[in-house]
């Protein structure tokens, strides 16, 4: 069984690679390379797979998942400029891909257990653009959808 918790945070970022020229950054990131940054209302959906506990009837307590997401993501990312205020994005380009992977890295230790596994992080930058990340083991990128 797969259970998903959705949360939101608002943050600004700029997508640039310092070693690349202005023209090359524009080619890769378009307006997201504007040097003073811009913001998004990010929406994060985290999916955990497992079997319901025979006593509690739950895969995991969604309050616990909410607490993990608030502690590891929202409290650090919300209303921040990712490049300036949220490591590792002072060194790592905060593309949607890299933000999704960082979220996975932060929350996986708190979520994986004997009866449950983190399966997917879906990060919406806007309603028209989102990224799915399922860890490094999924060579073909096939999560569950």
């Amino acid at each position: 069984m797969l259970i998903t918790r959705k949360i939101e945070f608002s943050a600004s970022h700029v997508c640039r690679v310092p070693e690349l020229s202005e023209e090359e950054n524009r080619r890769l990131f378009g307006p997201a390379a504007n040097p003073h940054g811009h913001g998004h209302n990010y929406v994060l959906e985290v999916s955990v797979e497992g079997k319901p506990d025979p006593v509690t009837g739950m895969v995991l307590d969604l309050k616990e998942l909410k607490d993990v997401l608030n502690r590891e993501v929202v409290s650090l990312f919300d209303h921040r400029f990712l490049n300036y205020e949220v490591p590792p994005f002072d060194r790592v380009n905060p593309t949607a891909e890299n933000v999704a992977r960082e979220i996975w890295r932060r929350i996986e230790p708190s979520l994986n257990g004997s009866s449950r596994t983190l399966r997917q992080v879906r990060l919406y930058e806007t309603p028209d653009l989102w990224v799915d990340y399922c860890g490094e083991g999924t060579e073909e990128g096939l999560c569950f959808a």
């Binding site: 690679v17 891909e97 992977r101």
Partner: peptide
């Protein structure tokens, strides 16, 4: 589209 992220942190160039 699917793919690995490149050194710029990008799996798909949206432009």
């Amino acid at each position: 589209a699917r793919g690995p992220a490149n050194a710029a942190g990008q799996a798909v160039n949206i432009q």
